[in-house]
Structures are given as structure tokens and as C-alpha cells.
Simulated scan of single mutants.
Amino acid sequence: MTSEITLFVNPTAGRGRGARAVRPAASALRAAGFSVRTVLGEDAADALARARGAVEEGTGALIAVGGDGMVNLALQAVVGTGTPLGLIAAGTGNDFARALGVPLRDPAAAGRMIADALKCGRVRDIDLGRVGDRWFANVLASGFDSRVNDRGNRMRLPVGRFKYDLAMVAELTALRPIPYRITLDDGAVREVEATLVAVGNGPSYGGGMRVCPDADLTDGLLDVTVVGACGRARLLQIFPTVYRGTHVDRPEVSVFRASRVELAAEGVTGYADGEPLGPLPLTVRSVRGAVRVVGP
């Protein structure tokens, strides 16, 4: 493995934590004997092109500096190349970092962990979800949660997480069950009225919400969590339990596992790793061992 590695940076992640994370992470890597280059972009498309260029030039590892959105972009550059993906978690949610067990918001510690892992060969293959030509690491969200994202993305003010808190309140006011058609591996069609359907390669989204708590990054399967039709009061009761993953014990919640999932519903957008994929219907596949990651 070449001693040159690439930091793939989102300077705006975590309200500027991404930019501040670069120096301590790079210092830790250089202290371990690695040569470090930094890749930024004018926008997502330019950043992805630059990351792909670094991979094609033979970088020893692509290290995403930011949150889950940056990880998602980095995945598109490294899948199928054999180039390991590392993570300096400096975003708001950091759900992929939680799934991997890497340090959160401690770039120097994360840099030291990555350097040690690369020297010792602690690189492993994990599964990814795939929708068309897009890859994701954590969870594909659809329904109430994706409508909150839709509304928040349309709002100019306020900024930050408070915008999405307001969007959630507005969507609670408009809450209605959504008719879904869900098709799993066996081909049987399940027609359900649901509040949301989440398809998990990993267990969490939204900064630690364990919506698919038993999802395994290495089992070749997707966990499908269906929260059935419920009113506002009941949804507000269920919501806090998602952080512990105990919502799956509620009678309104069903969990399925499959390697291929088709979701269809009118007027619903799918989001994966917090990034919009487009309107349903969407077909999600689990791809075993799709990417190599640097881990503790």
C-alpha cells in the first residue's frame, strides 16, 4: 500500500467542524509516516470528480472528513476499486462512524486510529445498499421522516437543526397514513398503510436513531422497519424509543429482512444517508462486501 493517503474534506460539515478537523487529523497521519493530500471541491460533483481522480492515481486510502453526507459521496468514488475508505467523523449525525465504532468528533484520535489500522492491515469488507447506480451505507428513509426532510429542504429559515424541528412539527400536523406496496425477496407483495418505512444496511440515521437496530453491515441483508399507521400522540410516544431501538417491540412496528426490497408509494421521496434519491418506487439491493473500510 502506498504511503500517500487522501483526505476528502467537507469544510462545512458540522457547522465548520469539517474544516477544523483537517489539521489535527493530517498531523496525526503525518506523524505516523504517511504523506497526506487534501481534496476539496467547488460543489458535490466537482468534489466527487476530484476524489475519483485521487483513487485512479493510486491513493492508499480515501479518508472522508465530515458527516454521513460526505461518507455517501466518498462511497461513490471507492466502490469497486479496492481502495479503503476511512472516516474522520466531523458531521452532525455521524451514524456511519457509530456503526464502525470510530472516534466521534476527535480528529486527532481518529487520525491515529486510521494510521494504526492501515499499518496493521485492519481493513475489512462491508455491505452497502444500492439503488440504481447510487450506493448508501446507513438507512434509506421513506414516509414521515423523508417528508420532514422534504419540508426542511424547502425552508430558507431558520438554519441548522431547528429548521428540521419546525418541519417535523408541521408534518405532525399533516400526519396521514401512507399506502405502501412492499415487495421482498420472496416476491409476495405486502400492501400496508404505514407512517414510515426504513430500509437499513446499517442500524441508525438522524444522529443515533436506531431505526433498524439489528442491521448488520456484513450479513448480506437489508433490515426493513415498517412503522404502521398511527396517530400523532402514538407516534410521539414511539419516537423517543427509536434512540434505544426498542420501538421494534411495539405492536405498530414490523421488521423484515431481505436482500432485495421494492418500495412503492405515491408522493414519497426516498432519502439515503440523508441524501435524496428520488421519488418512490425504488428498488434497493444489498451488495455483500461492496467496500473496504478502515476500522478500529
Rank of each mutant, 00 (worst) to 15 (best):
E4Q: 14
V9R: 06
N10F: 09
P11G: 07
P11L: 01
T12G: 03
R15I: 00
G18E: 06
A19K: 14
V22N: 10
V22K: 11
P24Q: 08
P24N: 09
P24C: 12
P24M: 03
A25I: 11
A25R: 12
A26R: 15
S27R: 15
L29C: 13
L29D: 10
R30F: 11
A32H: 06
A32N: 08
F34W: 11
S35E: 14
S35M: 04
R37I: 11
T38L: 07
V39H: 02
D43W: 13
A45I: 08
A47H: 06
L48R: 11
L48H: 12
A49W: 10
A51P: 09
R52V: 13
R52G: 03
R52Q: 14
R52F: 04
G53I: 01
A54E: 14
G58C: 09
A64F: 02
M70D: 00
M70S: 15
V71S: 06
N72T: 05
N72V: 04
N72W: 11
V78N: 01
V79F: 09
G80Y: 08
P84K: 03
L85I: 13
A89W: 06
G91A: 02
G93W: 06
N94F: 08
A97H: 10
R98M: 09
V102Y: 10
P107T: 04
I114G: 07
A115W: 09
G121L: 01
R124V: 15
R124W: 04
L128H: 10
G132D: 07
G132Q: 11
G132L: 12
W135S: 04
N138F: 12
S142C: 12
G143K: 11
F144T: 00
D145Q: 04
R147S: 12
V148Y: 10
N149E: 04
R151Q: 08
R151A: 13
N153M: 05
G160P: 08
D165Y: 15
V169S: 01
A170N: 00
A170E: 00
E171F: 01
E171Q: 13
P177E: 00
P177R: 03
P179I: 00
Y180S: 01
I182C: 05
D186N: 15
V189T: 14
V189W: 00
E191C: 06
T195F: 05
V197R: 01
N201L: 05
P203L: 00
G207D: 13
G207T: 12
M209H: 02
M209W: 09
A215D: 02
L217A: 11
D219G: 08
D219I: 06
V224C: 03
V226E: 02
V226M: 02
A229P: 06
R234M: 09
Q237N: 02
Q237D: 12
F239C: 05
V242T: 09
Y243E: 01
G245S: 07
D249V: 05
P251M: 05
V253C: 10
F256A: 06
R257T: 14
S259N: 03
S259P: 00
R260I: 07
V261K: 12
G267T: 03
D273E: 07
E275G: 13
E275N: 13
L277D: 02
G278Q: 10
P281L: 08
T283Y: 03
V284H: 10
R285A: 11
R288A: 15
G289T: 05
V291I: 06
P296A: 04
